[in-house]
Write a protein that binds this DNA or RNA. Structure first.
Lengths: 340, 340
DNA sequence: CTGAAAGCGCTTACAG
DNA sequence: CTGAAAGCGCTTACAG
């Protein structure tokens, strides 16, 4: 087992100073061709690589960014990570992934832990609990210390920073409108409680579409799911107790579950009920029938978020600050088998 | 914008030495009660937090571990990350996630980059390309430098280190055997090419089950998919050209695709064909019919891998080395709607 | 009880 | 052309 070699050791072996070794390896013209070659050859032989931590301390930058997400099991968030990873790596950055598990406390702990020099900036999507509490002091604190933050998807207006979102309202409007144009009269909505920002926006879009088309809002057809534990029984009730010819669900889990339950009551999708989901993930693609859905393009969101963050980091000298942007990533209606 | 405060600044403000500040904050008895309180109060006021990078440099440990996976979109790997995260956080470790994208080069670059002091140890699953090339020098190099590595799922015998696996052979044997006991005679296998270690092991288990039951091996029913691009047409051919009453697929993507294609040819699952997949992920759970599958328990694998790594890190003083273990996580056959 | 010094591994302005 | 010194932010053995 040969431990990692340091400048000091090389200097000792070659009987020169540490400065000389350092400069030689960075190919400084200050050093004679001869010495440089000797040092470089030796370093290569011993497979010298500079210690990242020492460089980080010296440079006051770590070339590492952190992405905080509520849940990695959610396919959408996994795709965002993938997008972030690729852009980050291209620019020589590493990515630390933190999971808040939808918990405010875990979100705070993660941020405080990493804000102390471990990373250069954050990319994050708020946990449900944080959105519910509306307590964002941990985020503003980090920003105040001069560390850039980019929020995506689940964002808040209470914090000023760069953001990457989709137009949830518009996407929901379009999806609902699509169903209305198909001639459906009883379009149900399966959404989440309003404090989840995207849930509320999507609900608003649905309502707006109905209103725009002079259709009346039937509260019985609007289901807001609070508790992921027993959401199936809620959907069951919705379908059992109402006349429904189309469903718009704000995520794919709700959509696929709705289809299952519809089948249970002898309703065929899409023949009897058309279904549109949200988030173009694995479930939508591979379930039978394949589910029509609002494609969210997590990869692109991740890429964009990473680009915005890295741009800010790499231009830190210049006084860019306060020039925050909100990027809206376009969505698309992916039509498959669950709609006629 | 108030920059982060350092010991030096506190020392200056309070007109004491840096050593005194440091000791006070660590509550050293060397320092008078009085001074300690003063320093601590001041530190609290200015929200002092020690700089992680400086600590890492000093302590020669970063309290960060890296997990390298081939693909995050694969639900199984996402669950492993989740397991690693939780155990790591419990023990005060952060997790860096790296994606190799199934590429040998990316795997090597990631490891070399992070091995230079950024992290304390690796948890990894080999990329397809690495398994194909059988080139593991980057891994042995890291291990030689004294950095612990834990491999999971896609492992190799060529490297000595801690490992977490499932008994792929046995799991495949059991799944196939289950189908045989149900009375099926023409059981197809949809696997991957042999250089993917788990693909080969699962194929072997399938063959062993047939042999044990004195059934003959029909090569036409064994499909080894090389190319993820056009795997659908391969499965299509398999189903179109053969008489099949059951299918064992080595992942859920293959399983769900097989069901779709079977439907296309008018075969119902499970009435006409029973299907068992591998990896108990989102797809298996939510497709219609829900797919019976070999549950792999990624969470548990991740937790175990993290525990093994952290144990090694925390006990580094003691000469534990060379005492490598391979943990086998049990699998279970999860029966759902795709088998009769 | 307090502080100066050395050190973790590196870089760079400065002196010779 | 080479090297000693200072510094990034911290800890700790040692001196006073």
């Amino acid at each position: 087992m040969k431990r990692k070699v340091t400048l000091k050791q090389i200097a000792k072996e070659l009987d020169v100073s540490i400065s000389t070794v350092s400069k030689s390896l960075r190919n400084s013209l200050e050093i004679s061709e001869d010495t440089r070659q000797k040092v470089q050859a030796f370093a290569k032989l011993y497979n010298y690589k500079p210690n990242n931590i020492a460089l980080s301390l010296k440079n006051k930058k770590t070339k590492t960014i952190c992405i905080i997400i509520p849940e990695i099991i959610h396919h959408f968030f996994a795709t965002v990570i993938s997008g972030v990873e690729h852009v980050a790596n291209e620019h020589g950055y590493n990515v630390i992934v933190c999971l808040s598990d939808e918990s405010f406390d875990k979100e705070v702990i993660n941020m405080e832990m990493l804000a102390n020099g471990s990373i250069d900036g954050f990319i994050m999507s708020l946990s449900k609990e944080t959105q519910n509490k509306r307590d964002f002091h941990h985020i503003s604190e980090v920003i105040n210390q001069g560390m850039p933050v980019v929020m995506f998807d689940r964002v808040t207006n209470d914090i000023l920073c760069d953001k990457v979102i989709i137009d949830d309202n518009l996407a929901a409007f379009n999806a609902t409108n699509f169903l209305i144009e198909k001639g459906f009269k009883n379009i149900a909505l399966i959404s989440t409680i309003d404090y989840v920002s995207v849930g509320k926006l999507r609900t608003d879009g649905y309502i707006k579409a109905l209103k725009t088309n002079d259709m009346k809002i039937n509260d019985a057809l609007i289901l807001k799911i609070e508790d992921i534990e027993n959401f199936e029984s809620k959907i069951d009730e919705l379908i059992k107790n109402n006349t429904i010819d189309a469903i718009f669900a704000v995520n794919e889990l709700f959509a696929v579950t709705a289809i299952k339950i519809a089948n249970k009551y002898g309703k065929k999708v899409p023949e009897d009920i058309s279904v549109i989901g949200f988030t173009d993930g694995i479930i939508s693609k591979y379930s039978s029938p394949a589910i029509s859905t609002v494609g969210q393009n997590g990869i692109k969101m991740g890429e964009k978020a990473a680009k915005m963050l890295i741009e800010r980091l790499d231009n830190e000298e210049e006084e860019y600050e306060e020039h925050y942007k909100t990027e809206v990533i376009e969505t698309e209606l992916v039509l498959r088998e669950s709609t006629i």
